[in-house]
């Protein structure tokens, strides 16, 4: 393992080519993932209580928050793979902090980012409107549904309950899309993102 490893030379000034990640992009995604890892962990408590008093339909709506990192990361740096990385790393962080769902969270992380990643790819990583974000959120929510359906044993529930759950889940992830966009927009205004894609796109000269 001591032998030098040759790696593909990275081109840090990959302006124009969206394939190359710069160190700044990596760090922004890592920060989003770690901060949301902590939030994801903290959300487990309220989530359980919401679920307890509102039943599975509200539980599905509350699920939405767990999709925000996978939508915010790509919204900020606008690069392929950002959704997958942000959401998976956030889930990994949540697991390592000690969330009760343990390693299964990593599976959820990957599954919950696939829909979003596919949506952004469909838009060529160029359109970042509210509609895009909502569609990405809904897609992410639907793609990851089968696994929770199996993991949580939803197959045992009545059909009307399942339909309600589908509706509330869609609402929850749509709101996650809106939340990610408004948080991203608020962050851009602070100027902290001037070295990222969204910062450059929104730059206003003073």
């Amino acid at each position: 393992m001591n032998e030098p490893r040759t790696v593909k030379p990275s081109r840090p000034n990959g302006r124009g080519t969206s394939q190359n990640w710069r160190t700044t992009d990596l760090m922004v995604v890592v920060v989003v993932a770690l901060v949301f890892g902590a939030i994801y962990f903290a959300w487990a408590g309220p989530y359980e209580w919401v679920a307890a008093f509102g039943g599975t339909p509200t539980q599905e709506a509350a699920n939405g928050l767990w999709f925000v990192a996978g939508l915010l990361g790509p919204y900020l740096i606008r690069r392929p793979g950002a959704a997958l990385a942000s959401e998976t790393l956030a889930a990994l962080a949540e697991m390592l902090v000690g969330a009760p769902w343990g390693p299964s969270l990593v599976i959820y992380g990957v599954l919950q980012s696939i829909g979003a990643e596919a949506t952004f790819a469909l838009f060529g990583y160029r359109r970042w409107t509210l509609a895009t974000m909502v569609i990405a959120g809904v897609a992410a929510g639907l793609v990851s549904l089968p696994y929770s359906w199996w993991d949580y044993g939803y197959f045992a529930l009545d059909v009307p309950v399942l339909v309600t759950m589908l509706v509330t889940r869609t609402l929850g992830v749509a709101i996650a899309g809106i939340l990610a966009k408004s948080l991203g927009d608020a962050l851009v205004l602070t100027g902290a993102l001037k070295d990222t894609a969204i910062g450059r796109a929104r730059m206003e000269e003073v």
Binding site: V31, V35, L183, L187, T190, L193
Partner: peptide
Amino acid sequence: ILLTVAILRAT
């Protein structure tokens, strides 16, 4: 603000 500070530090 927390994200802003974190992102500033990270960059």
